[in-house]
Design a binder for these strands. Structure first.
Length: 231
DNA sequence: GGCAGCTGAATACGACCGAA
DNA sequence: TTCGGTCGTATTCAGCTGCC
């Protein structure tokens, strides 16, 4: 009988194909004569932040831990340990996780870039982020990434092609602000549909299911700022 | 230099807990 | 009851170290 925890078909061979990306791999963290814990020791803060980043991206993608684990070919318990920072995944596993999250590998480490109290992004130099609905003509350009204490602020310049399809329905913590620059669209928040035109703004709690419902016959450009608590 | 033993990291399996 | 998340434990493998 296979456990619900199990999502793998390959046996436990061929592991250790690549080295861990972290400098602690292969070296003892604690001298064994001093302390040999029954529980796995909490790994470095770097591992914890990597795990938090994986969890954030998973939640943004509306994926459960089980779904992501299956997609990445790891067990559910291992994904839990990655996200809690108790173990560090191998490069091979990180590549699978990034692929399953539909992001580039480097995105998993974007949270570990030196943070500042301000962030300047020249015009047209934002980071283009691919989400799952990019295929429907949705382009997201991240204009900055600023941490304000417990809060994470992510401003996106969003461009939707004419007649772009609906975006995936999202439910997140925190609040979201939208300001339309050009074009028009129908935006859904729960059971409500709001028609947005140039100059219109929308502020709402992101925990209610929301997303772009439909776009008119012209491309749409709008600013989307999400304010979410850091987990 | 080669081998064996030890140690730690990555991983899976199974079980448990809490929430819906 | 189901599902998501976590924990305890076993297994495998690579790196290190000491001995010959």
């Amino acid at each position: 009988m296979r456990s619900k925890d199990q999502g793998l078909e390959s046996p436990r061979v061929q592991r250790r194909a690549v080295a861990s990306p972290f400098p602690t791999a292969g070296k003892p963290l604690i001298p064994p004569q001093v302390f040999k814990p029954r529980l796995r020791p909490k790994r470095s803060d770097r591992s914890g932040r990597l795990g938090q980043q994986i969890r954030d991206l998973r939640q943004v993608s509306n994926l459960s831990a089980g779904s992501l684990a299956r997609a990445a070919g790891v067990s559910r318990s291992m994904l839990s340990r990655f996200e809690s920072g108790s173990v560090s995944p191998s490069i091979e596993t990180l590549e699978k996780l990034a692929g399953s999250l539909n992001v580039q590998l480097s995105r998993l480490f974007s949270d570990q870039i030196e943070t500042r109290s301000w962030c300047f992004v020249p015009a047209g130099k934002g980071v283009v982020v691919e989400f799952g609905n990019a295929a429907q003509g949705h382009q997201y350009e991240l204009l900055g990434h600023v941490l304000c204490g417990r809060w994470r602020v992510q401003p996106y310049l969003v461009t939707l092609g004419a007649y772009a399809g609906p975006s995936a329905a999202l439910e997140q913590q925190g609040v979201q602000f939208i300001h339309v620059f050009s074009g028009g669209m129908r935006y859904r928040h729960g059971s409500e549909i709001v028609h947005l035109r140039p100059g219109d703004s929308l502020l709402f709690e992101a925990k209610t299911e929301h997303g772009v419902e439909a776009v008119g016959n012209q491309p749409v450009s709008y600013l989307s700022i999400s304010l979410r608590p850091r987990g």
